[in-house]
Amino acid sequence: MFQVVMFNLTNGLIVGAFYVLMALGLSMIINLSNVVNFAHGNFLALGGYFAFMLTPYVGFWGALLISPLLTAVVGYAIEQILIKHVYARNHIYSLLLTFGLGFILQDVCRFFWGPSPLPLGIPDSLSTPITADLFFITWYRVFMVAVVIVAVTGLFAFLRYTRVGMRIRAGTLDLDTVSALGVNVAALRSYNFAVGSYLAGLAGVLAAGQIGLNPNMGDDLIMPSFIAIIVGGVGSLTGTLLGGLLIGVAAALTTVFYPAASEAVIYVIMAVVLLLRPRGLLGEEGMLS
């Protein structure tokens, strides 16, 4: 029993960590640009495939560094070419645009790398279990959680201490004032979108090492990421962080006791939060409501 609970708890933390990476990127884009990026899961897949392409040349570690950056560049370019044109319009257009974009990116992955799943090689040092007792916890899993912690810490530091980060935070609160103070809001949104894409790409590399690659690998993560944002509260990144971990662990623990409900439980959590605390756990009153 201990092993079963431990297995699912660590699983939940890892799954939760993925939700957090995905949801933080999504959340940043929603907060500053008011765009729900449906294609976010496809950016994740893109990150994974970039790593697959780069690993033979630069190894896993090199790919881990480079592929998220490439994903960020692609995200930046897509924002410049397509998404920035719909900021001023009704929200329905940005939803449709990113929705269609997701279709396109998915078929592009299928076109270049084929429809069948591909493995991403990880270093041998990471694929061994940490102890014989807890054989299911490989070093890779520990490593994934460590990377997520570093990335999230890095993100919060970036938002707190750099000039662009501070402007992003300020823009989240009051974009008009930030604009009136002479900040180039269009550029700010582009950088912000690139940072969000970077996080998705990073999640993609990590996920590819664990579960392998396929063109629709991001699809299963996009809904839980939405829910992480709703549960945590729109407008609060700390809330998103909390929401992601909460639903990851809750889903995994439900698997122990009642596997059929493991996906349903995150929706139940969302419904309860909406009923009792409509703004989300850490959301601010009136934010996007």
């Binding site: 765009v35 929200h91 809904m223 409509p278 409501s289």
Partner: peptide, 21 residues
């Protein structure tokens, strides 16, 4: 009580509940 993007997100999530059931 939700509006805008938030309304859309919650409707998506409710839709997925029915899908999973």
């Amino acid at each position: 009580r939700r509006r805008g993007v938030y309304f859309a997100m919650v409707t998506i999530a409710f839709g997925q509940v029915c899908f999973y059931i």
